[in-house]
Amino acid sequence: MQFPSRFSALPDYAFPRLRALLDPHDAGGPVLHMSIGEPRHDPPAFVSQILTESAADFGRYPPNHGHADLQDAIAEWVARRYRVTVDARTQVLPLNGTREGLFNTAVALCPEDAPVILTPNPFYQVYAVAALAMGAQPVYVPATAQSGFLPDYTALDAKTLDRTAIAYICSPSNPQGAVATEDYWRDLIALAEKHDFRIFADECYSEIYRDTPPPGALQVAHSMGADPERIVIFHSLSKRSNLPGLRSGFAVAGPKSMARMKQLRDYAGAPLPGPIQTASAAVWRDEDHVVASRRRYVAKYDMVDAVFDGIDGCAAPEAGFFLWLPVDDAEAATLKLWQETGVRVLPGNYLSRDVGGANPGAGYIRAALVAHEDELQSGLIKLRDCLYA
């Protein structure tokens, strides 16, 4: 029996690789999971009540494109956050988390005759899988310290850009926490208009920052008067509202793009269950819990800066909740940290691809700032003393 070969070039997913690296060895202390970005701040207390009160809706098929109230709540949030008005019926699609959308939107919108999809390197792994599923060539563009930890798509040659269908960009970036400025977005949108490709803006970490909200792709595109079909944005309640298990997010796109996305959903998608849609609408309308959670992340940034004070390259991110820490060898450092302390982090090369004999993640580890403060303080000190003493 034959299997498709299009995914044969993919290594195992990051976390099975991590288990293979660490699990044969004993932990050197109490286990602290800093490898996965699973928020542990309290979710809004009202969510469980709403799920209970609307539980009868689990006995009904939910509307494929989302309840009107959830569509409205999302459009209202976009207007508050980015000062852009979108049509709730023709531009909004609730998602089972953004991973579903980041993959399926490529299926819905990638043309057959544009065989290049651009992705940062390192990157969220679904970007590459979406490219390969569409028979496209993923082009991995380094996002290193030299480029401000964001990919410089403007440096690519015109031939590659003319063949490009989609450019993925994550801001604030995973894993480095870099923020695309308004100028960055303007340059990328202008490039997309010149070479006729779409931008898929993965903005899941947009509500975790110190002082200034990161600018969004839709916001900048609107100010430029860019074609609304040029941009698709993706957001989630996982990070914003500490609800990773709710699997609730959304995409916003131009009406023509959204019509194709909804058509695919009709045939192959999985709409959110009704009670989850009801709870999600309430969560998008509430900002108090977001402000409280953000305040805790800012305190964690300060904790990081105090623990790593004076260590070159080790500082809190600009936004998001990952540390991207320099090491000589990512796998060796990860294993050493596990065996000596029990702290579990992720090698940066598990989030990257080799290009031209180099892997931009090989000299870094990723550590998530998701644990409760006392536990996190202890873990950061162990990490510092183990790898940087």
Rank of each mutant, 00 (worst) to 15 (best):
R6Y: 14
A368C: 12
A108N: 10
A9H: 02
A315E: 15
Q137L: 05
L369F: 00
I117D: 05
Q91K: 05
H372Q: 13
A192R: 00
L337V: 08
D23A: 14
A158H: 14
T119N: 08
R17V: 05
A45C: 03
V307C: 04
E287F: 05
D328M: 13
E229Y: 07
S236P: 01
K336C: 12
S257W: 08
D374W: 04
D157L: 12
E112D: 14
L387Y: 00
A333G: 07
I166E: 03
S352E: 02
A315C: 10
R344L: 03
L337R: 11
F250G: 12
W185K: 10
P317R: 02
F7T: 10
A9E: 15
R198P: 06
V31M: 08
R163E: 08
T160P: 04
S238Q: 11
R353T: 10
Y61K: 12
A9C: 05
S248Q: 09
Y297P: 02
P215S: 13
A332F: 04
D354A: 02
Q377D: 05
T90A: 14
D202L: 01
G254P: 06
V232A: 05
G310D: 07
L323D: 03
I117R: 09
G101E: 02
Q146C: 01
M134C: 13
A56Y: 11
V86K: 00
A190I: 06
C170E: 11
T98F: 03
L218E: 12
V78I: 14
M34C: 01
A268I: 14
C110F: 00
K239V: 10
A282Y: 01
V327D: 15
P215D: 11
N349F: 00
